[in-house]
Each structure stands twice: as structure tokens, then as C-alpha cells.
Simulated assay, not measured.
Amino acid sequence: MNRRRSIRQLAAVLLGLALPVLAAAPARAQDKTVRIIVPYPAGGNADNIARLFGDALAKKLGQPVIVENKPGGGAMIGAQAAARSPGDGSVLFMAPTAVFVVTPHLRTTPYDAQKDFIPVAKVTSWIPVMVTRKDFPGHTLAEIVAEVKRHPGKYTFGSAGPATMTHLMGELMNQKLGMNTVHVPYKGSADLISEVVSGRIDIAYDSVLVPQVKAGQVQAVASMVALRNPDLPSVPTLKELGTDIDVPNWYGLFVPKGTPQATVDRLGALSRDIVAGLDKDQLGKMSMKADYQGPAEFKAQIARDDALMRDVIQKANIHLE
């Protein structure tokens, strides 16, 4: 009897020692640093948006949030790293449209865009603008489309490179509006500016030319998304001009597959408040606008965008070597 009593007493002592350890475990998990993986170098739009978002998230959570840049491979290195991370809410992924609805239709990716990630929130939308050279024979969208149709193959549109969104927007306009403009790729948006200003390129779909629009060096025709560019508030959207085109150009927050739904929902709710408070001036400098969608709505948006971009790429017969 005494022996059994001694065993029970020893067990109670051991359990008493264990309880504080078990109780402390969740607290330590909550204090774990949250990482936001960005698949591009520091200093770009994705990095800047992630840092604005991360600073606000750290205040909401009361714990450290760091941005981890993993560039390379056309964003595939960072995407793969995020996809292989634990689904415990400690690793987030901030990425643009192309990673999810463009690259997978052009290359074999080391991640499955539809299966390896769970959408948490759309954070911002990029607001590119359709721009023409100053002396283009047409000022409104209707006039420009009519002129291009009268002279198929005569006019050009420039882009920041093959299969970039600035290229795909031009192909989408050709397909949806029955235009036949010739694509001229450059090595980046910066190279495009002087070409449109000088008149060597007729049309561009980008936001880098906004300063040239404001300076009267080129003319703006329309915003390519359902939002007006904040720097060009008088320039209508394509939809306002009666054209049913809304180009997907967002930055969104994702978590790896396996992340509990409760964690996704909590991050989605936090993101709503964070997006509402993002600095409009800082976003405006990037031709961005806060544009929140929650997990379910964002998932549906991605599915629509994926179908649209797949169709554009196939019809334009776009390939990357």
C-alpha cells in the first residue's frame, strides 16, 4: 500500500512539473517570428508592399514580422520556398498575379499554383494605363480602335518584355477589340518610356508613363483595370468606356497548403483592417491602390483570372524559350 501511495505521489509531482511546460508551449508558438516571403529582390513593388503590410501586421499580432526576399527563376525560387514551408501561420507569401495565373501557363513550375497555396487576401491592385504617342491619329478608345482596324499590322505596342503583364494586356486588347497591333518587347518598362515619347512606338499598357502623360508628352486613353489611376483621376476605365475588360493586376497574400482554416480566416480578417490603413500616398507612388478581398472572394477571383490569362496566352501562341 505504501509503495502504491509513493508511486502516485511521484506521478503527481511529475505531472505538476509537466503542466507549466505544456501550458507554455502555445505561448512560445505565438511568439514565433512570422516571415513574409517575397519572390523578388528588395526595393521593388512586391517588396515595398510586403514591408508596408508586414509593419502593420507586426503591430496587430504583437510579435516580429520580417520580409524575406527570395528572388530568382522568374519568382519560382521564392514560390517554391513558400510552398514547402510549414502550414502553421508562421510563413506568408506575398506575390503578384503573374506567379499564379501567368507563369504556370508558360513554364513547368516547381510549385502547383492552385494546390500548394491558400489565398488569404488580395492586398492591392496595380493600375496600368493605356497610353499612345502624342500624335496618334485618334484620341478616344473608339477612335484608336477604328484607326487600328483600318490599318491592320501598321501600329505597334511596346512591352517590358515577352509574357510580362504589359505584353499580355496588349494581346488581350487585340483579341477582345479585334485589333491587329504588332508587339515590340523591351528589356523593361524604363526602356519603353523614350520609345513612346519619341513616337517610335504607338501604344503602351503600363503605369511608368504617367509622368509623361502629366507632362503632355503622351496621351492617356484608359485605365486597364476597374479602378481609375489616382494620378490621372480624369482618365476613365475601360469598363466606363463600355469595354468589358478588367486586366488582373493584383498583389496578394497566401499561406502554404495545410494551414488550418481558422488561421486563414484570422489572417484574412487582420488583412482587411491592414489594407484599409495602408498609406495611400506610398501606394500611389507605385501606381497601386488598396484593394481588399477576403479568402473566399480572392480564391474565386484567381480562378477567373487564371482562365482569362490561359486563354490569352494560348490564342496569342506565347512561348518562353
Rank of each mutant, 00 (worst) to 15 (best):
G158Q: 00
A142M: 04
H139R: 14
D135F: 03
K187E: 13
I66V: 15
A98W: 10
K122S: 14
A27H: 11
A113W: 01
V247W: 09
A42E: 15
V145T: 08
Q212S: 13
E321I: 07
N2D: 14
M165A: 14
Y251V: 10
Q282G: 00
A163W: 09
L283H: 01
Q9P: 01
G284Q: 08
R150D: 12
V182R: 08
T33P: 02
D88L: 06
D244Q: 11
G284A: 02
K257H: 10
Q212R: 09
P71H: 06
A11L: 15
I318K: 05
S234C: 03
R3M: 08
E240K: 09
Y40T: 15
A226R: 12
V197D: 02
T103F: 11
I37C: 03
I201R: 08
A82S: 00
L227F: 12
R4K: 12
Y251I: 13
A98I: 12
P96G: 15
P233W: 05
T156E: 06
A24R: 04
Q282N: 07
Q30W: 10
V196P: 05
I318R: 02
V145M: 06
M76H: 08
H319C: 05
V210W: 01
L92Q: 06
K214I: 05
M286E: 11
P162L: 14
G153C: 05
S287F: 12
I203M: 14
G277H: 13
Q114E: 14
R107E: 11
R304H: 14
T166E: 13
P211C: 05
R5F: 08
F254L: 11
K289T: 13
G138Q: 02
Y40E: 15
V235N: 05
M286H: 04
L238D: 01
E240D: 11
F117V: 09
K60T: 13
R5L: 13
R150Q: 12
A42T: 11
K285L: 09
L238Y: 03
M165D: 15
A204P: 02
L177Q: 03
V65D: 01
A190R: 12
F136H: 01
S125A: 13
V218R: 01
S159W: 09
A204F: 04
F117I: 07
Y40H: 12
K187A: 15
D281G: 10
K239D: 05
Y186M: 12
K70Q: 15
A204G: 02
S287M: 09
N180A: 08
H319I: 06
K115L: 04
L270S: 04
V196T: 09
V197K: 03
V13Y: 04
H319T: 12
S194C: 04
K122M: 13
T132I: 00
Q9E: 13
R200L: 08
F93M: 03
L253C: 03
P26E: 03
T181W: 13
D306W: 06
R200M: 06
A50C: 03
Q219I: 10
G216L: 07
D112S: 15
A29T: 04
V208D: 10
Q9Y: 10
H167M: 03
P26T: 03
A23M: 14
Q63W: 07
G74V: 05
V312M: 06
M165Q: 15
A75C: 10
P236F: 11
K285A: 14
D305C: 05
L241M: 13
K115S: 11
T33L: 07
P96K: 03
G16D: 06
N229C: 00
T140G: 07
